[in-house]
Design a protein around this nucleic acid. Structure first.
Length: 581
RNA sequence: GCGCCCAUAGCUCAGUGGAUAGAGCAUCGGUCUUCGGAACCGGCGGUCGGGGGUUCGAAUCCCUCUGGGCGCGCCA
């Protein structure tokens, strides 16, 4: 039996779409109870702000959906629902329109009270409890320490960190994790590359290899420092001490770079620890016990009358029968030489994550890893664990555009555009925004020329300027000895309320982003908010013209609230909220 | 060949099966010179890649074709 609870505004209503939906559900139930609507299962009621403002602040299309199951025309259904709507202080006018839309208008008096509410919530504005008591982990960046972060990786960094911030706002306890491998051939190459640079720095004749050599300038810097520290004591050493030194320095560089864009990971997880703990082989044993593994020269389910050329000389490998879970082919877990492929420790890693008790695991990966993560999920399923906790945000690749042409990147060749370079040329805020403000599914053309421009073509400044303007008003107000203390928000006008309406959608943006794993939404919302703000700033003067003192005070109060909203939104994007520009 | 992603204004891109598809830039014209103009207002600009289908309703879901990106290792 549906129990309708009184719905009140004030401090409690943070998700207005949801609140309206509950009103409608309640109305349908009571209409059914009264016999005005026939019994039927109520579909999920979805309510959201319509595109056009003359269609209300929140609109419901349920009546259209219900026409068939109810056997009544949608316009009548809408009217019946409207009659049974329970009272709520945030609801103003309710209108039923043509085919059967129910358009809600927010109550203006209630809306005005939200100005004070926004100011009271401050930095925790629209802090939700959707994830209350739940732990989420976001794994992102996860670049091996072979070089500085380049721009391609950076997109995942911004998306991952913003996702983490939004999950925090939704109420989750969030951990940020960086997974890395320091044991592979890449790292041997890195050690050898530094060894050569070291010898070079000592003035010894060296030959720069054509292959397997990292050419970046940073290794020359490391080499100089290493000479200063150790002199020529490492001349006879192999790659190992160089690899260790390079790794440590590289992580310092990477961490410092991430710090510049307000990203700090809680945990750096070394793949190697999975070997040290035995987790890798334990995972394999578990898979074997469950019968998902077999030993063979080639996968068992391919036609074997024609052996592959490259199978020649290879012994038996250990295969994971991933086809049983929908994979297109089985995967090798252990090579014939006895060493594991990347897949096995990756599965072990995710087992480890799940065992750490997270309710939600988010992986931010580049599109080039799209196939790999599926194999991991199959592995998790094979082990009888809940793979549905794992959600992958697959990021399409970034193309750097300069002078209208694509700029190719390669970490190994050394002619990449590093994230540090990019920040130097623009700013941390510009980089964060431009890499965030795109759907992950969409390829991102990063226009270097535009990013460098500090003009109105650049949306970042437009948004931040809204915050700057609010701060400016209060600097001016202070200089004139004015305050917003004791303001009467009832004196606010329609322009200001239009902004407050939009501000009240922030909760939905946070909730939706967290539920759909689409952090880019906040970036577009920020732009919309700013484009509502600037005209108001121009038209609604607080300190200028013949504005009555009490009205001026109320407007100051409004700008106080606007500043809170912009600061919150900018912070959610990991950007600064400057007071001046 | 197979799998995943993409195709929306001149450009870069939003768009949770709903009402007349939006924004920024570019372009053309206007406001205005300040509570910091990195601003405001208006105009121009679209057969949502083509074709079928599902639905009361499709840019959105399904099929297909075309054109792009990525992936299809006993690499990581």
């Amino acid at each position: 039996m549906f129990h309708s609870e009184p719905i009140t505004g004030r401090a409690t209503v943070k998700l207005l779409s949801d609140a309206h939906a509950r009103l409608v559900e309640s109305a349908i139930h009571s209409a059914q109870a009264a016999g005005e609507l026939p019994p039927f299962d109520i579909p999920p009621v979805e309510i959201r702000p319509p595109k056009r403002s003359d269609q209300g602040d929140y609109a419901a299309a349920v009546a259209l959906q219900l026409a068939k199951p109810a056997g009544i025309n949608p316009f009548d259904i809408a009217n019946i629902i409207t009659r049974h709507l329970p009272p709520a202080d945030f609801v103003g006018a309710v209108e039923v329109v043509k085919p059967g839309f129910i358009n809600f208008r927010l109550d203006e008096t209630w809306l005005k009270t939200q100005v004070e509410q926004i100011i009271a919530e401050g930095d925790s504005l629209f802090q939700l409890n959707l994830g209350a008591g739940k732990r989420a982990q976001v794994e992102f960046v996860s670049a091996n320490p072979t070089g500085p972060l380049h721009v391609g990786r950076s997109r995942g960094a911004m998306v991952g960190d913003t996702m983490a911030r939004l999950l925090e706002a939704a109420g989750y306890a969030v951990e940020r994790e960086y997974y890395f491998n320091n044991a592979g051939k890449q790292m041997v190459d890195l050690g050898n590359s530094l060894r050569i640079r070291y010898l070079e720095a000592l003035g010894q004749p060296v030959e720069i290899p054509e292959q397997d050599f990292y050419q970046g300038e940073y290794l020359k810097d490391f080499a100089r420092d290493l000479v200063a520290e150790k002199g020529d004591s490492l001349v006879g050493a192999d790659w190992k001490p160089f690899k260790e030194y390079a790794e440590r320095r590289m992580f310092d560089v990477i961490r410092a770079t991430l710090k510049r864009v307000n990203i700090e990971h809680d945990i750096f997880f070394n793949e190697n620890s999975l070997y040290e703990s035995g987790a890798v082989w334990h995972t394999l044993d578990n898979l074997r016990e469950r019968g998902h593994v077999y030993q063979a020269i080639r996968p068992e389910n391919v036609a074997n009358d024609q052996p592959d050329e490259d199978e020649a000389g290879k012994g038996e490998a250990v295969w994971f029968r991933s086809t049983a879970f929908g994979d297109e082919k089985d995967r090798v877990l252990v090579k014939s030489d006895g060493s594991p492929t990347y897949t096995l420790p990756d599965i072990a890693y995710h087992v480890d994550k799940i065992n750490r008790g997270f309710d939600l695991l988010i992986n931010v990966l580049g599109a080039d890893h799209g196939a790999q993560h599926r194999v991991v999920k199959y592995g998790i399923q094979a082990l009888g664990l809940d793979a549905s906790k794992i959600h992958v945000i697959l990021i399409q690749l970034v193309r750097m555009i300069r002078d209208g042409k694509e700029v190719r990147m390669s970490t190994r060749r050394g002619d990449y555009d590093t994230l540090d370079d990019l920040i130097d040329q623009t700013s941390a805020d510009v980089v964060r925004y431009m890499l965030l403000a795109r759907s992950p599914d969409s390829h991102l053309n990063f226009d270097l020329d535009l990013a460098v421009k500090q003009s109105n073509e650049n949306p970042v400044y437009y948004i931040q300027n809204a915050h700057v303007r609010c701060a400016g008003i209060f600097r001016e107000a202070e200089a004139r000895g004015l305050t917003d203390n004791g303001a009467d928000v009832n004196l606010l006008g329609a322009d200001e309320l239009r902004f407050i309406r939009k501000a009240m959608e922030l909760g939905e943006v946070i909730a939706l982003s967290a539920q759909t794993f689409e952090p880019h939404r906040i970036a577009f919302y920020a732009g919309e908010l700013a484009s509502l703000f600037h005209p108001i700033y121009d038209n609604v003067r607080a300190l200028h013209g013949d504005v009555p003192p009490d009205v001026a005070k109320a407007r100051l109060r409004f700008y106080r609230a606007a500043q809170v909203v912009f600061k919150r939104v900018l912070t959610l994007m990991g950007m600064s909220a400057p007071e001046r520009m």
